[in-house]
Design a protein around this nucleic acid. Structure first.
Length: 475
RNA sequence: GCUCCCAUCGUCUAGUGGUUAGGACGCCGCCCUCUCAAGGCGGUAACAGGGGUUCGAAUCCCCUUGGGAGCGCCA
């Protein structure tokens, strides 16, 4: 059975790049009926924070990327690493290195000055006793990397990638204080957690040959690897916390649907013919890791926005209503007091790119506009339109029932009566009830708003339109 | 600097030796229209460059160029 994992380090929130990696792992696992494990790589105690852990967990929940096991915390697994470390030491596959940081820094600087690739020079590799000078009292443990030959990473996305062992050096697997480092903990965890497929960012491809050696030293077969390309910011640089990468939770705040974000992310590096819009179920059916592209891609906010609109348009109104409600509440509107939220959603569904937009554009359904938009009022609430508004208010009051059809008939009737175009009736009405020139079709809008509220607002607007100042001689 | 990865419209991509190089976002125009949208139609725009291989290369190979990543007692 396939087992994958997502292994973020809690040094910041869950951002776009991490979310896509998680998505790919998740989709791949769901597609093949495997198990998805969440592991928090918090061995960097300096920078890991509980807030970041929470932000990551919350991001996963919002995106709907559920995991079958975990979260496991590496800091709770030190015993496991210690055991393996001990074994490597005993078998001579690892050794203590007494070099001081100062010596290491100096060696590195010298190598760079000589335009060489910086790497450990192996001073302690074959020592039987600690060296006599420049000795650290807290020795680290290094892994004995083969000097000759090469390793091949058989990557599910990139194919075979070959590295010469001469390019590798003896990496530190345990710090001076005895705590294990990344390249060692991933290997131990992935093998102990039975991970069959390691799906991770491209930036780890260079670590993979070392890890393959570690697997060999521990006597196990390495998992299958899949290195997914990076996501670049609009400046072409790798997306990072410092570089324009925003938290996925920020997209929630900006009114994006999780399925839209996921849809956008999956298409960044993967495709299925010409299809652009996918449901999560479709993705689970169609996605496979070896179809992922080789090249890095650039984050394109306007396409994400379009996709969000697509998902808003095609989703069930009830689903959108659930996501929309908090945005209304945040604007001091109680969506249960006024037209049914689902009906409002239906009316707004194809004219909002985000839930924020939809909430803003729907406020007038729940409370009277504080003021008429200045330009809108000047153009539409005139002494001429006042008569039309009064006429409409009167007819609305007399309607046998309050339906869109009858409302529509009143509007078209008014246009005929006054011998004007539809716009000369609809727009003043729109300004009267919404305060602006934008809303769903006028009959739909008024029907939702209700007869009493409509008549009240239209009469108020008619009165406003007739006040002396609106015919100010300054015109 | 060294090693590794990558290279089709501005962006995301289809393409796997023979296509007028397709789609999508964006942008522009037109249509529809009570506003805003949505929708429809049309337009703009790409195979980084150079060598090969081949009857024939976006597709295969090499070089160059460009971009990215790694080279920590970070992950």
């Amino acid at each position: 059975m396939i087992r994958t994992r997502f292994a973020p380090s809690p040094t910041g929130y869950l951002h776009i790049g991490g979310a896509r990696t998680a998505l790919y792992s998740w989709l791949y696992t769901r597609r093949h009926g495997g198990r998805f494990v969440l592991r928090i790589e918090d061995t960097d105690r300096e920078r890991s924070t509980p807030e970041a852990v929470n932000a990551i967990l919350e991001g996963m929940v919002w995106l709907g990327l559920d995991y079958d096991e975990g979260p496991f915390y590496q800091t709770e697994r030190y015993e496991r690493y210690r055991e393996h470390l001990q074994r490597l030491l005993e078998e001579g596959q690892a050794y203590r290195c007494y070099c001081t940081r100062e010596r290491l820094d100096r060696v590195r600087a010298e190598q760079q000055a000589r335009k060489e690739k910086p790497r450990y020079d192996g001073r302690c590799r074959d020592l039987s006793a600690p060296p006599s000078d420049e000795v650290s009292d807290e020795p680290v443990v290094r892994f004995r990397t083969p000097l000759e030959g090469h390793v091949v990473v058989d990557d599910a996305i990139r194919g075979k990638v070959q590295f010469h062992n001469s390019e590798l050096d003896d990496l530190i697997i345990a710090r001076g204080d005895g705590t294990p480092t990344y390249n060692f903990t991933v290997v131990v965890d992935d093998l102990e957690m039975g991970v069959t497929d390691v799906i991770r960012g491209d930036d780890h491809l260079n670590n993979t040959p070392r890890q393959i050696h570690l697997y060999a030293a521990l006597g196990v077969e390495p998992p299958r690897f899949a290195h997914v390309p990076m996501i670049l910011g609009e400046d072409g640089k790798r997306l990072s916390k410092r570089h324009g990468a925003v938290s996925v939770l920020q997209y929630r705040e900006e009114g994006y649907l999780p399925e839209a974000l996921l849809n956008y992310l999956v298409r960044l590096g993967w495709s299925h013919g010409d299809q652009e819009v996918f449901t999560i179920d479709e993705l689970v059916q169609l996605f496979d890791i070896d179809d992922v592209n080789h090249s890095a891609s650039t984050f394109n906010p306007s396409k994400l926005l379009w996709l969000n609109q697509q998902h808003i348009m095609h989703a069930e109104p009830a689903h959108i209503a659930r996501h929309l409600a908090p945005f209304l509440s945040a604007r001091d509107v109680d969506p249960t007091e006024g037209p049914a939220l689902e009906a409002v959603v239906r009316a707004q569904q194809e004219r909002a790119k985000t839930l924020v937009e939809m909430a803003e554009a729907s406020l007038f359904f729940y409370r009277r506009p504080a003021a008429y938009d200045e330009k809108a009022a000047k153009k539409n609430l005139t002494s001429e339109s006042a008569g039309i508004l009064e006429h409409c208010a009167h007819r609305f009051s007399g309607l046998p029932s309050w339906t869109g059809e009858e409302i529509h008939a009143v509007v078209t009737g008014a246009a005929e009566t006054f011998d004007v175009k539809m716009g000369k009736v609809a727009q003043p009405l729109r300004v009267a009830v919404t305060g602006s020139t934008v809303s769903p079709p006028i009959d739909v809008t008024l029907e939702l708003l209700g007869r009493d509220e409509t008549v009240a607002r239209v009469e108020a607007a008619a009165a406003w339109a007739q006040r002396p100042e609106s015919q100010s001689p300054a015109e």
